[in-house]
C-alpha cells in the first residue's frame, strides 16, 4: 500500500482543523464534516464497471469464482438439465444486469439545467448550415463559443475579412472586427434582435443562452429520451417550436453526459424563412478558465 496521505488533511477541511481540534466537540465537528466529505466523494465517483471490478477482485482474493461457480453437472442424472436451467437463469440475470433503464427525461433535463447553471466557462465549437450556402459567403460557418451562465458569452471566429469577436457580459452585447479592433460596436443585449435583423439573421445570440434554452425545451416542446449512446451519453430529442429571440427552434437533439448533465452535443433545426441558419450544431470542447473581464466590452 503506497501513496497514502493520511497526514495531510484534505485542503477543504483545513479550516476545520485550525486551530487543531483537541476537544471532543471539535473532533466531533471535524468527523461530521469528514462524513459528508466521504459521502460526496462516493456520490460523485460512482462507476458500475469499477464496482464490478472491485467485487471481482475480492472474490478472486478468496479463491472462489462466485455465484454458480461450483456447480458440477455430474452429481445427479438431472443435473445436466438443471445446469441448462441455471445457465439460462445466469444469462438472463446477466442481461438484466446489462440493461440499465434510461434516465427519466425530467431528471435528466434537471441535471442538465443544474450543470449549466454552474458558474464555469464551457467552450463549444459551433457549426452552422445556412439555408442557402451561396447567398452569404462572408458569413463564417464555424465559431468558437465560450459560455457562462448569466447571459455571458464570447464568440471568436475568422471570416474572409479577418478575425471577428463578439461577446456579452450579461447586459451589453459587443462586436469587434479584427480589421478595426479599436472600433467596438456595443448595444444593450435587449437590442440583439434588432442587430440580427440588420445582419439578415446571421447573429441570433439566443442560441448562446443554453441555460434559458434548457429551461424552455420542457415547457414548449415534447422532450423524449431516445436512449444511451456511446460512452455515458444519453440522446434526447425535443420536438416543437421555441421562439429564440427573433429565430425559432423547430427541433433539437441533445447528447447529455449522464453523470454530469453537461450537454456534449446540441443540434438545433431552425424554422422561419427570415432565419439564415437552417441548422446550428454545438460540440462540447470542455471547460476552460476565462477571466470574467473577457466577457466585458473591450477597452
Amino acid at each position: 500500500m503506497t501513496g497514502d496521505d493520511l497526514e495531510f488533511p484534505d485542503e477543504t477541511l483545513d479550516g476545520a482543523s485550525a486551530p487543531e481540534p483537541v476537544t471532543p466537540d471539535q473532533k466531533s465537528e471535524v468527523m461530521r464534516q469528514r462524513f459528508v466529505h466521504g459521502m460526496l466523494r462516493a456520490l460523485y465517483s460512482q462507476d458500475p464497471d469499477a464496482r464490478e471490478a472491485r467485487v471481482g477482485r475480492v472474490l478472486a482474493g478468496i479463491g472462489g469464482p462466485g455465484l454458480g461457480g461450483r456447480f458440477s453437472p455430474l452429481r445427479h442424472p438431472f443435473a445436466a438439465a438443471a445446469g441448462l436451467l441455471v445457465l439460462g437463469a445466469l444469462v438472463a440475470s446477466y442481461l438484466v444486469f446489462l440493461y440499465r433503464p434510461v434516465p427519466r427525461v425530467d431528471a435528466l433535463m434537471a441535471r442538465a439545467m443544474s450543470a449549466h447553471q454552474m458558474q464555469v466557462d464551457r467552450r463549444y465549437e459551433v457549426n452552422m448550415q445556412l439555408r442557402d450556402e451561396s447567398v452569404a459567403p462572408m458569413i463564417p460557418r464555424r465559431l468558437d463559443v465560450t459560455l457562462r451562465p448569466g447571459h455571458r458569452f464570447l464568440v471568436e471566429t475568422r471570416s474572409r475579412f479577418g478575425a471577428f469577436r463578439a461577446g456579452c457580459d450579461g447586459t451589453t452585447l459587443w462586436l469587434q472586427s479584427g480589421m478595426l479592433p479599436e472600433q467596438v460596436l456595443k448595444m444593450p443585449l435587449a437590442d440583439a434582435p434588432l442587430l440580427n435583423k440588420q445582419l439578415g439573421g446571421a447573429m441570433d445570440v439566443g442560441y448562446f443562452d443554453l441555460e434559458w434554452l434548457l429551461g424552455m425545451l420542457p415547457k414548449t416542446c415534447t422532450v423524449t429520451v431516445i436512449g444511451r449512446e456511446g460512452d455515458g451519453l444519453v440522446r434526447v430529442q425535443a420536438e416543437g417550436i421555441v421562439g429564440i429571440r427573433d429565430g425559432r427552434l423547430r427541433s433539437a437533439v441533445l447528447l447529455v453526459r449522464e453523470s454530469s448533465g453537461v450537454i456534449e452535443r446540441l443540434e438545433i433545426d431552425t424554422a422561419g424563412a427570415q432565419h439564415m441558419a437552417s441548422k446550428v450544431v454545438f460540440s462540447y470542447l470542455g471547460e476552460v478558465v476565462l477571466d470574467p473581464s473577457e466577457y466585458a466590452v473591450p477597452k
Partner: peptide, 9 residues
Amino acid sequence: LCHVRDPAT
C-alpha cells in the same frame, strides 16, 4: 473515502 484521500489506497 471519509478518511483517505488517495483512491488507490
